[in-house]
Amino acid sequence: MTEIVKYGAAILIILGALLSLITTIGIIRLPDTYTRSHAASKSATLGIMFILTGALLFFWAEKGYISARLVLGIVFVFITSPVAGHLISRAAYYTNVPLWEKTVQDDLKMKKEASSVQTVETKQKMPQHS
């Protein structure tokens, strides 16, 4: 039984390492910030989760010790990394990082233009108020 669990842990860790490698390849190959953020926010999450789960299983089989911190780590990575991907891509969009030239459709442009017009108007109004 412990042998089987150990092999399972080994397979999980190898899978996680492979996923992290593929994330890296994706970050090099994909053309712009947003598509790179796709690769980084998905594959890296699952890769790290696999590696941590593998470590958890290994120490359970080898030492009979279940580390609660590893479980917490898995949960934290799972919750926080999509938010990080969202924030990075949003910050990139509002600081005018260009989309890839083959991008076909951009619904967000209208909202951004509307908000930038608004800020310009308020900036023009500011001196009158003061």
Partner: peptide, 12 residues
């Protein structure tokens, strides 16, 4: 990512 030809069409 691993496809030899990159044929994605991103959009928002």
């Amino acid at each position: 990512v691993l496809k030899p030809k990159l044929d994605i069409q991103p959009c928002i």
